[in-house]
Design a protein around this nucleic acid. Sequence first.
DNA 1: AATATTTTTTAGATTAATCTAAATTGAGCT
DNA 2: AGCTCAATTTAGATTAATCTAAAAAATATT
Lengths: 220, 220
Amino acid sequence: MGLSYAEENYLKAILKLSGSPDGTVSTNAIAAQLDTSAASVTDMLKKLSDKELITYQRYKGASLSEEGQRVATSLLRKHRLWEVFLVQSLGMTWDEVHEIAEELEHIQSDRLIERLDNFLGHPKFDPHGDPIPNKQGRYTLRAQIPLSTLVSGQSGMIIGVKEDDSPFLKHLNDKGLSIGKIVRVLTIDEYDHGLLLRMEGDDVVLSGQVADHILVKPVA
Amino acid sequence: MGLSYAEENYLKAILKLSGSPDGTVSTNAIAAQLDTSAASVTDMLKKLSDKELITYQRYKGASLSEEGQRVATSLLRKHRLWEVFLVQSLGMTWDEVHEIAEELEHIQSDRLIERLDNFLGHPKFDPHGDPIPNKQGRYTLRAQIPLSTLVSGQSGMIIGVKEDDSPFLKHLNDKGLSIGKIVRVLTIDEYDHGLLLRMEGDDVVLSGQVADHILVKPVA
DNA sequence: AATATTTTTTAGATTAATCTAAATTGAGCT
DNA sequence: AGCTCAATTTAGATTAATCTAAAAAATATT
C-alpha cells in the first residue's frame, strides 16, 4: 500500500529539517515547516511511528527510520528530476517549477522515474543546484559556498540557491542571475555588505542578504 | 479553488458515459464505472450540482454543464498528452501508461500542459488512437471502425482500441499488434467469428471479441 | 527548588468521501 | 389504477486529516 500525500509530505519535512539524514526534529519545527498546528503534527507522528517510518518519543521529537529515509530521499529524487524535466525539456523557468514538482513528486511509479532519469541523461543536480539522489538514495555533495563569502575581485559560478520561494527566484531572474552564470565581485560595501557584481559585461547590484542565499563555486 | 481528485474523476466518468458531450447519465452507471456505491454517487452529484458543474435532478440522472464539460474535456486532454509523452519520449509501452496518466492528469498547471503540448509537437491522437482535445476542447474525429467489421481480404491500419485495461493491451502487444501496423484479414470463422490475419508476413489468430475492441482505418 | 514559560499532547469537533441498510420513487405490467 | 421491482435516495456510521482549546510535560528563570 502506498502512502498518502500527507504522510509523504511529513516525511519530506522531517528530512529537510533534520538536515543530516539522521538527527531528531521537534513537533513545532514540523508544524512551522508545513504551516499546520502542533496537534496535527502529533497525530501524524503517531501514525508514522506505527508504520515504522520514523522513531518517535512523546515530547522528544522524531527522526526518520531506515525505511523513512528511503521514502523521503526517493521523494527528493523525484522532485528534482521533475524540476530538471520542466526546465530542460519544457523550457520553464527555475522560479516556476517548484510548485509543480511538489505535485509531480507524488506520482507512483518507479519505472516512470527510472525512464525519466534516463531520458534526462542521469542529471546530478537540479535547476536550483541541489543534488539529485540516485536510485540508492546517495548523492554527491558539491563544494558550494554563499556568494556573500567571496572577497572583492574573486569570481564564482552560480550553482544554486538556499531559498526555494518564488518571489526570491523571480528577483534573481529579473537581475539576470541564473545557474551556470559566472560573476565577479567588484566591490563589497563595508557598512551594509551590499555587492557590486560584474556578469557578462553588465554590472549588477545585490544586497548582502540576497547574496547570502546564492550558492557559488569559486572560479580561478 | 481547484477540484478534488474525486470530483474530477466523477466529471470524467460522466463525460465518458454520456458519449456525446451532452446526454444524461444514471446514478447506477456512474457507480459501476467508478466501482463505488450508488449512495456515494448521489452524494457527489449533489455536490457537483451545487458547484454548477452538472445539471442534476433527483431520480433522473445527471449531465455536464458548460463548465463541467470544459473541465472534463481538459482532463481528457491532459491524460492523453501525458500518455503521448510516456510512450513517445520515455519509451514506455502503450499497455502500461494508462494508470500513470490517470494520476498525471490531475496535476494543476495550465502552463505546464501548454508547454508539454508544444514539446510533443501538438499531437492529435494518443497512443491508443484516441483524439486529443485542443485547448478549446475541440477534437478531430477519426474514421475508425472495429477490426471485426472488415471483410475477408480487406486491410486496415490499427489506430486504436476500445478497452484501456492493461491485460487486454498486453495481450495485443504479445501478438505483435500495435498502433500503425497494417493487417489484412485472411479468413473469418463463420461460427465463432475468429479472425486469421496477416501482418508483416506473420499470421495471427484473433478471437471475435478481441477484434471487436480493436479500431482500424480501412486501407485500399 | 519553586515558579514561570514554552512545548507538546490530549480531548473533542469538523469536513470530505466513503460505506451499509432502510426507505422512497418511478417505470413497466397486468 | 394498482402492483411489483429495480433504481435511487436518505439515514446513520466510519476513516483520514485537520482544527481549537485545555491539560500535561519539559525547560528556563529566579
